[in-house]
Structures are given as C-alpha cells and as structure tokens.
C-alpha cells in the first residue's frame, strides 16, 4: 500500500506519498516536521490525491477543498414543510469546493440557505439559478459557484430545480 501523509485535516493541504516498501523522513523538511495531521494507506498512489472515498453510499457529501479533500460534511436530507424541498440547508460550515452526489437522485445546489439565490453569468448576461450534479457524479466546483453553496435539494429530474 502507498502511504499518504497530510498536513491539513481531512486529507487536506500539503501531503507526501511513500511507495510500497519504501520509507521517507520528516525531520529536515520544515513543511512536514511536526505538522502532520493525518495519514491513510491506499492501494494506488493516485488515491492519495483525493478524499471522496469517505462519503457513504446514498448521501450527498461536500468538501472544504477541491477533489474531495479537506473537511467533509455528510448531508442527511429532510423535507422542508415550507418549500417542500427534499434537501439540506447548511449551517456554519465552510461552503464547499467539491461535492459527491452519491445518491440515486440529482442534486441542485443554491447560494442561499432557503433553496434560492442566483449567480451572474458574465458570458451570457443571464443568471444561474442552480448548480446541478447528476446522480453518482463527483466534481470540483468551478467559479462562480465554488465556495457559495448554502443549501441543496434532491430531485428526480433537473426541471424540479428552482
């Protein structure tokens, strides 16, 4: 197994990899000396570069950093009686920079905690009303959406998004 050693919490931040059967030292590189916050063992090196594997099946997971790394939030959806949205309104945690929709429905993300809000699209002079990640897909979230989500809902078809 490869060993991945991370400076940031939740497989985030700077990290180093160690090939099976090899060793490495952390006494001279000031970036790593006394700074490691976590590690994991993985069967291939590329798996050190992600943290998506923590997301349990049938959940939407959002992550503080791109590519499924950093602190993860596992969302347990409820049905909002006012909006009838089947989703999650976020609390104080950092707005995500990547997400995995590991459910059987599509997910629509919104910039407001009330399943509403818009983003400007300078290219078309129109406004986006939702950001969609289809069922099963994981992705780093690009600008202008990155770091802005405050709620999401699960839908059978994207026409149901606000």
């Amino acid at each position: 197994m490869w060993a991945c050693a991370y400076v940031g919490a939740g497989y985030g931040g700077l990290f180093e990899t160690v090939k099976p059967g090899n060793a490495d030292q952390y006494t001279t590189d000031p970036r790593f000396t006394g700074t490691l916050s976590g590690h994991k063992l993985v069967p291939s090196r590329a798996l050190c570069f992600t943290g998506y594997e923590r997301c349990p099946d049938d959940h939407v997971c959002t992550f503080k950093e791109p590519n499924g790394r950093g602190a993860m939030t596992v969302h347990v959806p409820t049905t909002d009686p006012a909006t009838r949205s089947h989703g999650t309104s976020y609390g104080a945690e950092a707005a995500p920079r990547s997400a995995w929709n590991r459910t059987k429905k599509h997910v629509c993300f919104y910039p407001q905690p009330t399943f509403t809000g818009t983003w400007d699209d300078p290219a078309s002079l129109r406004e986006f009303g939702a950001y969609v990640i289809l069922r099963g897909d994981s992705t780093t979230i690009p600008a202008p959406f990155s770091g802005t989500f405050r709620s999401h809902e699960l839908v059978n078809g994207t026409a149901e998004c606000a």
Binding site: A9, G10, Y11, S37, G38, H39, K40, G51, R54, A71, M72, T73, V74, H75, V76, T78, T88, S89, Y90, G91, E93
Partner: peptide, 10 residues
C-alpha cells in the same frame, strides 16, 4: 437535520 462528520483519522 444536518450531520457534520469531519474526518480526522488521528
């Protein structure tokens, strides 16, 4: 209901 589970293996 929101469940936050920061993943800190150590």
């Amino acid at each position: 209901m929101r469940v936050t589970r920061p993943h800190l293996p150590m």
